[in-house]
Design a protein around this nucleic acid. Sequence first.
DNA 1: TTCTTTTATGCAATAATATTGCATGGACAA
DNA 2: TTGTCCATGCAATATTATTGCATAAAAGAA
Lengths: 144, 144
Amino acid sequence: MDKIDYKILNFLKEDADITNAALADKVYLSPSSCLRRVQKLKSQGVIKKTVAIIDEKVLGRNLQAIVEVDFDRHGTSSSAPFNERVKNEISVTKAYGITGESDALLFLSLVDMQEYEQVCERLFNNDKNVIRFRTSFVMKRIKD
Amino acid sequence: MDKIDYKILNFLKEDADITNAALADKVYLSPSSCLRRVQKLKSQGVIKKTVAIIDEKVLGRNLQAIVEVDFDRHGTSSSAPFNERVKNEISVTKAYGITGESDALLFLSLVDMQEYEQVCERLFNNDKNVIRFRTSFVMKRIKD
DNA sequence: TTCTTTTATGCAATAATATTGCATGGACAA
DNA sequence: TTGTCCATGCAATATTATTGCATAAAAGAA
């Protein structure tokens, strides 16, 4: 992990479609050396994977919501079932256990309000360990 | 945008490293047809770009924070300078204008607490339109 | 320092993959 | 039916990725 590796990561982080030859140019290496570095970074898990960024409007999930959740009990065993349900919920794109006022924060990428209602039912209303939740909807994307 | 296109998107969303031939197999098309669909989706902007997912630990940004921000005034002209600063702040990975209790929600990917302090200084403490902010730190990644 | 070992590099050959031209066939409208 | 349009598959071609190998640089060991 030297300076060149970081350069490579910073380029691929923004555009993984770039050809190896073009990337090699940018970091002043031969294509073969460059490729071997990229392969190494992948095998080491530094580059986890590469994904296509899809226009969410096209996928019909243009309603973004952020939900703060308060739990009754906070132990691992108490929140495990909740975490499982969260993982299986397609509309939940991100979920974190957090410090501060609330205990968890969820990101929802929804088709419409009807789906929101259904997700709430499954995740929050049916879970006795969830004592409260507060939802904010995304109006404007400042940075994404 | 038919069923096959959606299939393609769903595969590339998870793994853009897949070869065109392998993708073609999965959607039961010939490589050439499949490729032409992918190219079309890219030119249409349905596929915005493809990026490498980097292990954040390696990049030294392993401290994740979520900041809710309250503004004094909410008009476009009032929040424009804030939005500009947010865009220029490397550690801010996502930022949204939201409904509900707070006005904006920021995602920070930080090196350490010192950087957090500096970012707060630049974004919040020096902005008269920011009347309050509340930070939560990510303890556990339930889904990411 | 000097010698040895390891690791990274570039070049050139090769393999794999993407890309294009073209002919065919299906869907649809007149 | 007939014609047009568009997607498809095949095969040829162009790009790109990958590997072997010799050399050079870097990292240790004595």
